[in-house]
Design a protein around this nucleic acid. Structure first.
Lengths: 225, 225
DNA sequence: GGTTAACTTAACAATTTGGTAATCCCGGAT
DNA sequence: ATCCGGGATTACCAAATTGTTAAGTTAACC
């Protein structure tokens, strides 16, 4: 079975790591474990989990520190982060949430509740990316079937073209800076030349045959019907 | 000050309604209160709050029932819902979250923590809706779309012109010294001649067709509708 | 493996934008 | 009236940015 989502779980207590990790896997999640803060940070960058669970008291870096660091990176600005801890005082709780975490859960915690909360978080965050069908004017972009159609006439786009169009058409009118486009379509790892975007834009314009992508010189591109 | 967001808060205990409502307002939220489940549901439909807090044990309809009902409606499929309750058993907790709520908080709860959790939820859901729009008289400067419009007629400005106008119109009436303009629009690195500003101002005036940028001789420029 | 499509890059053309300088204007001061 | 210190205007050129095309590189699929 396809895993529902990839979860990184960081705790320095092996017992907890085992028990909760096991239960998460039983729930259908793919689990990556880390024993300390530094490792949690490094493994996150490598594996790009869909959700991150951080214990606070860990060697090398606390969960809060890791959370702050991750939130600096564009790739992790929206990743749901759960702080899991034995500390239950008000100050820690607030500090945890203010560091950009989405949930703060005090141990001991029933595994069922933990999983339920994780489901709730993923339900919300995956819903956002789940806008599977975009409709604007005569255009329909179906992200499930990978099809773009104009007045019921199907247009076939390549993968990158499709992703680029989906990004722009996903928020019509809004201008996307070139580096936003790069990081969203190509990711931050890959480095591609500047002309690459133009060329893809050109192909899209050509294939669509209509002028719905506007250039804002010196800034970026935007979709406009 | 414009309220940060509209929150509907439903609880049948007047004391709690008062205390938490007061604190939410102090935090800058607009608060709508309901005394029972039915009212919570009806008022939600009328006011379209950005976030809904529901007590479970309420007359007419429990918080869970309201949550389920709201989630049926397309308008409330994405609205963050917090279940607030005195029940702290595992089953209720899970049932609450499974009904589509985003958070389940057990009373008693520190007001600060409650607000911190609400902030965290709104932070996530409102992130995309931040609009950088300047409106003055008939003019609208939309920094997301990179558009300036006058009486619904769109005016197209180049990047520097747009930045310059945004700067001036951002604080109408305030005089910007030539130095200030230089450092804010051009940065401190770049060195450009003094006439450059004039020329850009001229282009803006020309394109807008109206005289909303005043010259203060020997000082600088200011925007005035 | 060979073929095809997709992706990226490079090179050049086309366009737009930004900056400068020369000149013109408009008060206020001489 | 004339001069003078800004600023306004204009035209022009350089720089920056994007469009276009073609050719090289990968990756995917028989």
């Amino acid at each position: 079975m396809e895993p529902k989502a990839k979860i990184l779980f960081a705790d320095d207590e092996p017992d907890i790591l085992d028990i909760i990790g096991f239960n998460l896997e039983k729930e259908g999640y793919e689990v990556i474990t880390a024993n300390n803060g530094q490792q949690a940070f490094d493994l996150s960058k490598i594996h790009r989990p869909d959700l991150i669970i951080l214990d606070i008291m860990m060697p090398y870096k606390t969960g809060i520190e890791v959370c702050n660091l991750l939130r600096q990176l564009p790739d992790f600005r929206d990743t749901p982060i759960v702080i899991l801890t034995a500390l239950n005082d008000e100050t820690s709780h607030i500090k945890g949430l203010d560091s950009g975490a989405d949930d703060y859960i005090s141990k001991p915690i029933s595994t069922k509740i933990l999983i339920s909360r994780i489901n709730a978080l993923l339900r919300r965050t995956q819903k956002d990316n789940e806008q599977k069908i975009i409709r604007i004017g005569d255009m329909v972009i179906d992200q499930n079937r990978f099809i773009v159609s104009l007045k019921d006439k199907e247009v076939s786009l390549a993968k990158k073209e499709f992703e680029l169009l989906s990004l722009l058409a996903g928020k019509p009118g809004r201008v996307f800076l070139r580096n936003e486009i790069l990081s969203m379509v190509w990711g931050t790892e890959v480095i591609v030349g500047d002309r690459t975007i133009d060329v893809h834009i050109r192909k899209i314009r050509q294939k669509l045959g209509i002028d719905c992508i506007k250039t804002i010189k010196g800034v970026g591109y935007k979709f406009e019907w």
